[in-house]
Structure formats: structure tokens, C-alpha cells
């Protein structure tokens, strides 16, 4: 009951935000492209007559549009389009799931640190600082060595290098929000701390969180390709945009389409998520200034 009355400072913030977002044409374009990529990767493979892992060494390196294969075939004679779609599933899933994990960890750590402050806050935020001291490459390589490479571990690894930024944003927001009237009122009403934190304070910090989330998806997709480049990541024969791009490296001069297809896919997806984040930032809080 307190939420409804107290937390809504603006009468129709949602509509206003939507209006501002719609004006941001690039963000809208980004959202549409993301939708296309997601739908394409999800349903596309069912429409293709080719299996993404079926090898036919007699048909290696068929150029695009030269036959049944729209985007040509790769170094093992597999259909590039099928692999691109299946790779999209993995890369987008990694990006989104890694973001969700990073968000969850970051929000919890940030909320606790910001709400309790004092020793708890200091310890938690110093932990964040400590992890930020590690070059993310070190974290990735060292953690990768500890686990078997694969879909789950790659996702967790990427999340492990991304939650600190969120924690910082949330901590700052929660710290300032908890001094506001509605939080003080909620405390007066006798709500539990957890309830105040996650029902009152965090939702009010949603704007920067949402922006950070979209940008994190972009970062995670890009990181997946770096992890592949450094020799970890998704194991063959499964495709990801990152390992496709990495495998195409040595054929850059002889079969450039192998590198162009995943390269364009990554750039397109990452750019779109970045634009989306940009648009959301303008829409949700025009004055906000987070990178």
C-alpha cells in the first residue's frame, strides 16, 4: 500500500519515457534489429535444410550465393548461415544470461552496501574495488583455467567480469535514495529491511540499472569473441559468433566470407544493444550520465 502512494513521484513516467524513447530513432532501429536477430536465431534454423554441424569435406569453402548455401560453406563444408543462426543462439544467450547474472550479483551487492553502509558497505565496496583491480583478461584466463570450457562456464566467466560496475551504480543510488522521504516512511511503517531494499529502493534505481543492463549485453557479446580469440570459450562443434570469427581468421584472404558473416553479426548486435542503451538512457532520465 505504501508503495503505490509513495514511490510514484511522477504521474505517468512510463508514458513520458516511451515518448522520449520513440523519438530516439537509432534506439528504435536497434530494438528492431535485436528482435530480428533473436527471432532469426530462434526460428531460422528450422527453416533451413542444413544442419549446422553436418560436415562435408568435399564441399569446403563454397562461396556465398554459389549454390544451395546462401552464405557459403566453412572450412568443414558446413552451411555458414545455419551456423550463424545457431551461433546467434549461443552468443545472444551468453550475452543476455551473463547480463542477468551480473545484474543480480551487482544489484544484491550494491543494495546491501548502499543500504547498510558502515562496515558492511565498506567491506562490500572494497571487494568491488579489489575485483576491479584485476585486468578482466586475467580474471577470464585464470578462471577459465579452473573450469572446463563450455557454454555455462563461459557465461559465468563473462558475468564475473561485469558485475562490479552495476554494484557501484546501485550502491550510489540506494545510498542516496534511502535518505529520501519514501524510504524513511517505509522504515517508519516497520517494513523489513529486505523488503525496503528490493521493493522500494531498487525499483527506484531501475533507470540506470536498465541502461547498464543493455550495455552489459553488448559488452558480453564482444567479450565472448575475445574469449574465443584467446583460445577458450565454446567448444567445437557448437558454433558461436566468437568462435566462428576466430576460426575464420586464418582464411581471411582465401575465404573472407567466413569472417565477414560473424563479424557483421557481432558488430550489428553489439551496436544495436548500445543504441538501445543510449535510447533508454535518454528516455528514462535525460540528465543521467553513466557511461
Amino acid at each position: 500500500m505504501s508503495t503505490a502512494v509513495l514511490s510514484i513521484a511522477h504521474p505517468t513516467p512510463g508514458q513520458a519515457a516511451w515518448r522520449r524513447f520513440r523519438r530516439h530513432r537509432l534506439a528504435l532501429a536497434g530494438a528492431v534489429i535485436i528482435l530480428v536477430l533473436v527471432v532469426g536465431s530462434t526460428f531460422g534454423p528450422y527453416l533451413l535444410p542444413f544442419d549446422d554441424t553436418y560436415i562435408d569435406v568435399m564441399k569446403r569453402f563454397a562461396p556465398p550465393l554459389s549454390g544451395a548455401h546462401l552464405l557459403g560453406t566453412d572450412e568443414l563444408g558446413r552451411d555458414v548461415l545455419a551456423r550463424l543462426m545457431m551461433g546467434g543462439r549461443i552468443s545472444l544467450a551468453i550475452g543476455i544470461v551473463a547480463m542477468v547474472i551480473a545484474m543480480a550479483v551487482g544489484i544484491v551487492v550494491g543494495a546491501f552496501a548502499g543500504f547498510y553502509g558502515g562496515v558492511v558497505g565498506a567491506v562490500l565496496m572494497r571487494l568491488v574495488d579489489a575485483v576491479l583491480c584485476f585486468p578482466s583478461i586475467f580474471l577470464l584466463l585464470a578462471l577459465a583455467a579452473l573450469t572446463e570450457p563450455g557454454l555455462v562456464t563461459t557465461t559465468v566467466l563473462i558475468a564475473a567480469t561485469a558485475w562490479m560496475g552495476v554494484a557501484r551504480v546501485v550502491e550510489a543510488q540506494v545510498r542516496s535514495l534511502r535518505e529520501r522521504d519514501f524510504a524513511i516512511a517505509a522504515i517508519a511503517f516497520g517494513s523489513s529491511n529486505l523488503r525496503i531494499m528490493f521493493r522500494e529502493l531498487v525499483p527506484n534505481a531501475m533507470a540506470p540499472i536498465v541502461v547498464a543492463a543493455t550495455l552489459n549485453v553488448a559488452k558480453a557479446i564482444l567479450l565472448e569473441s575475445y574469449v574465443s580469440y584467446l583460445g577458450y570459450g565454446i567448444q567445437p562443434p557448437a558454433a558461436s559468433w566468437g568462435n566462428m570469427l576466430n576460426n575464420a581468421q586464418i582464411y581471411l584472404t582465401s575465404a573472407p566470407w567466413l569472417a565477414i558473416a560473424p563479424g557483421v553479426a557481432i558488430t550489428l548486435a553489439v551496436t544495436s544493444f548500445n543504441f538501445l542503451g543510449d535510447g533508454l538512457r535518454d528516455a528514462l532520465d535525460p540528465r543521467m550520465n553513466i557511461p
Binding site: T53, Y54, I55, V57, E75, L76, A144, A145, E148, P149, G231, Y232, Q235, P236, P237
Partner: peptide, 23 residues
């Protein structure tokens, strides 16, 4: 690449191979 070819050839005779590469 060799691993993936082996995987496919061996699947045809009912042997399941999984790739587990390491640094």
C-alpha cells in the same frame, strides 16, 4: 577440425565423442 570430423564419423558407428580442449 580433425576432432569434429572424427566425431561425425564415429557417431555413424554408435560411438559418442565429446570435445574437451584445454590450454
Amino acid at each position: 577440425q580433425t576432432q569434429q570430423l572424427l566425431m561425425q564419423d564415429w557417431r555413424a558407428i554408435g560411438a559418442a565423442m565429446r570435445v574437451n580442449n584445454m590450454p
